[in-house]
């Protein structure tokens, strides 16, 4: 069995850090690639809601440094089984590569006591979300 307690995903995006930051903090952007979730990240609080307004998980924002770094708690309220597990942590890091692109690294960790959440977000889970995010920001910036 693979150890999934710390998961790391990295993707190169042809977009500016500001565009990526907006894509991960504005609900009218996240709903286009994050399974329809309206995700809002302020300096204090992370909120995720389903298209019908249902609670999909919220928690404190631990680091908020636009347009570079965002760290927040993750709670899987979108699934009753997963919701019973303790909160984990998601970190977003945006690095400007200096050539009109940036590198986005997502680390989902503190999953040691949340094995079901770890399985459900692993591989295709975050992979699909980040692929959708890539398409969204690169479509916007395409000439």
């Amino acid at each position: 069995m693979s150890d999934l307690s710390t998961q790391l995903y990295q993707v190169l995006l042809r977009a500016t850090p500001e565009q990526v930051w907006e894509a991960i903090t504005a609900p009218d952007r996240t709903r286009l690639y994050f399974h329809g979730a309206h995700v809002e990240n302020t300096a204090e609080w992370h909120t995720s809601r389903g298209p019908d307004g249902a609670d999909w998980g919220d928690g404190p924002v631990c680091e908020f440094d636009p347009p570079r770094r965002l760290v927040h708690e993750w709670r899987s309220a979108y699934d009753p089984e997963l919701a019973k597990e303790p909160p984990s942590r998601v970190s977003w890091e945006i690095e400007d590569t200096g050539d009109g692109s940036c590198r986005l690294t997502v680390v989902h960790d503190r999953l040691d006591d949340s094995p079901r959440t770890a399985r459900s977000v692993s591989g295709p889970g975050w992979g699909t979300v980040l692929d959708g995010l890539k398409r969204l920001v690169e479509e916007v910036t395409a000439p």
């Binding site: 790391l8 995903y9 990295q10 190169l12 680390v107 591989g123």
Partner: peptide
Amino acid sequence: GLVVTRRNGREKLHFLNPVPIRR
């Protein structure tokens, strides 16, 4: 882009990045 490294104290850790394989 298939492996990404992170520093953890004095250790350099290697992580599998599944995003390019997915693409």
